[in-house]
Design a binder for these strands. Sequence first.
DNA 1: AATGAATGAGCGTTCATTCAT
DNA 2: CATGAATGAACGCTCATTCAT
Lengths: 188, 188, 188, 188
Amino acid sequence: MKDSIMEQSIQLFAQKGFKETSIQDIVGELNVTKGTFYYYYKSKEELLMDIHLQYIERLLENQEAILADESKSCQQKLHDIIFKLIHDIEKEGLRAKVFFREIRHLSPQHLEHIIPKRDRFKENVQQVVEEGMRNGQFRSDLPPDIVTLGILGVTNWSYFWFQPNGEKSDREVAAIFYEMLINGIKAE
Amino acid sequence: MKDSIMEQSIQLFAQKGFKETSIQDIVGELNVTKGTFYYYYKSKEELLMDIHLQYIERLLENQEAILADESKSCQQKLHDIIFKLIHDIEKEGLRAKVFFREIRHLSPQHLEHIIPKRDRFKENVQQVVEEGMRNGQFRSDLPPDIVTLGILGVTNWSYFWFQPNGEKSDREVAAIFYEMLINGIKAE
Amino acid sequence: MKDSIMEQSIQLFAQKGFKETSIQDIVGELNVTKGTFYYYYKSKEELLMDIHLQYIERLLENQEAILADESKSCQQKLHDIIFKLIHDIEKEGLRAKVFFREIRHLSPQHLEHIIPKRDRFKENVQQVVEEGMRNGQFRSDLPPDIVTLGILGVTNWSYFWFQPNGEKSDREVAAIFYEMLINGIKAE
Amino acid sequence: MKDSIMEQSIQLFAQKGFKETSIQDIVGELNVTKGTFYYYYKSKEELLMDIHLQYIERLLENQEAILADESKSCQQKLHDIIFKLIHDIEKEGLRAKVFFREIRHLSPQHLEHIIPKRDRFKENVQQVVEEGMRNGQFRSDLPPDIVTLGILGVTNWSYFWFQPNGEKSDREVAAIFYEMLINGIKAE
DNA sequence: AATGAATGAGCGTTCATTCAT
DNA sequence: CATGAATGAACGCTCATTCAT
C-alpha cells in the first residue's frame, strides 16, 4: 500500500504538480481514504521527501557503478553516464520530473539531506571530466566545472522533451549527444 | 502600478512559485490591497499569461534580430544566440525561470498563444544549425533537431545555476559553451 | 442618464436578480463608469427603492382611477382591475417582477414607505369585493379578505407565466379569469 | 448532520434568500465549521438542488396519490389538491418559498431535472380539470390550461401570505378557495 | 489497517462604495 | 458630469491534517 501510494503520487505529481495534487487525488485513485494516507506517511511533504530520496539514491548508485569500473576509459564512462540518464527516462522519467520540479517544496531540514547528494551527482560527472583532462583524453583548456554544467544541461533537458516511444531511441539520442559533446559540430 | 505588480510578482513567482504566491503576497509588498490587483488584472492567471507573453516576445525579437543579420556566419550567429541567452539571465533570469517552470498553470486557451512562439524559438535555432550544415560550416552527419535540443539544453539549463555576479562572466560562460559545442571536448 | 440607468437596471434586475446584477453590469451596458452611477444614485439600494416606488405609485394611480369611476358596477370594476393588471404585463412586467421578487432587499426604512402602498393596493381590491357584497352583486357568504387574496393570486401569478406575444391575448386571459372568478367552473 | 444542514439552510434561504445566506451563516447556527459543510455538499448550489428535488418529488407523490384514487370525483380531487397544498404550508411552506423564489440559482443542468417535474405538477392539475370538463362535472367553455393557471395562482400565492397559526385554518381557507373556484363569487 | 467526520487556515475573486481630479 | 484608482469586507471553496472508532 505504501508503495502504491508513492507510485500513484509520482504519476500525479509529474502530471499536475505537487501543489496541484491533493491527498484526495492520490487516495481516490487507489480507492482508499485519506486516513489511510496518514497511516503510512506523516505528511504530504514526507512523501515528497521519500520520492526525492529514492530517486537520487538510485541515480547515484547507478552512476557510481559506472565510475567504479576501472576497465573503462573516461570517454567510455562519459558515454555510459549519458546513455544511462537518457535510458532511464522511460522508467524514471516521472520521478526525475518530480525531482527537478518539486524540490522547492521540501523543507530546509529535508533539503539538507538531498542537496549534498544532488551535488555529488554533479561532482561525479565533473570528476570524470577532470580525470579525462589530466590523462589527456579531454582537452584541458576549458574549465571542468562549466563543461560539466554544459553536459548536464544536455542530458537533464532531455527529460523535458525525450519521448521513449518517439522517432529516435534512447541509444541513438545518447550517441548523438556523446558525439556532439566529444567532437563538436564544426565541419573539418 | 500595473508594472509594479508584474515586477513584484515575477520576483515572487521565481522565488516561491506561482501557486505558492498568493495575491496577498504580491500586493502586500506594494502596500496596496487585493482589490487593486483585480483592478489591473482579470485574474492571477492573466497576470501569468502577461508575463509569459512579454518574455517570449522579447526573446523572439532579440533572436530574430540576430538571425536577420546577413553579415554574420552561422557560427557567429550561434555564438551570438548563446551569448544573448546567458547575458540576459541577469535582466531576464527571473522571467525565464517563471517561463520555464510555471507554464503549466496557463489555461489551454492561453497556451495556444504561447506554445507556437516557444516552438518558433527552437525552430529559429534549428534553422541556423541546418543552414550551417548546408553551407558546410557545420558537420552534416548529425540530425539537426537533436543537435538543436542539445544546444538548448546547454543554454536553458544555465538559467538554473548561472549567477550573474559569480566567478565567471556571461561572456566567459558563453565562450566556453560555444567552444565546447563547436569543437567538442576531445583532445586532439 | 438617470432614467437610462433605471431602465437598464430594471432589465437586468428582472433577468438576473438584484444581488446578481453588479453596478458594473448596469453601467457597462450604458458605456459609462461606476462613478457616474453614484453621481445619480446614493446607493444601489436607493435605485431599487426608486424602482419600487415608481411602480407601486403608478399601479395605485391606475387602480384608483378605476375605483373612482362611479358609472361602473362592482363587477365591471373587478373586470377592469384584472384586465389592467394583465394588460400591464407587457409594459410593466419587468418592473412587476422586480417588485415582487426583490422587495426583500429594501432596508426597513425604505420598506416603511412601500408596504403601506402595497397594502392599499390589496385593500382597494377588497373594497370593491366588499362593496359588491353589500350591494348584492357578489355573494356575501364568503370572507372578503380571503376572496381578495384569491383574486390577487390569480392575477399576480400571471406575471410568472403570461407571455404578451403568446397564444392568448391579455384581453382573452382577463376575460377567462373574470368569468372563472365570477361564475365558477362548475357545470350548471 | 447532512439533514441538519439542509434544515437550517431552508430556514435561512426562506428568510433571507439564497444569495444573501452565506455558508458561514448556515454552519454558524449549527456550531460547526465551513469544512463540515463541504464534507456533505459539493457546493452551495448542490444543496439548493437537493432542496428543490426533495420538495418537488414529495409534492408530486402527494398529488399523484390523490389523482390515482378512482373513488373520487373530479370536484373531490380538485378540493383535495387545493387542501393538500394549503395544509402543507405549515410543514413545507419554507421549502415551497425556496422552491418558488430561488429556482433561478440552479444551473442549467440541474434545471433540466427540476423543470419537467414542475411541469408535471401543473399538468396533473390540468388533467383533473380536463377530465371534469369531459365528464360534465366542470363547464367546458373555458380553456383548461388558463383555468389551471388560475387555480395554481390562487394556491401558490397563498404561500406568500398564509399563516398556519393565523385567524383562518388551512381547512377553512381551502374550503373558501374551492367554493370560490367552483361556484364563483357572483350572487345568484 | 482503515474509515469518516470535523477542523481551521488560507486562497482567488467579487463588489459596493469612496474620492481626488 | 464623469473618470479612474483604490479600498475592505465578504464569500465560496479547497485542503492538509487530526482523531475517535
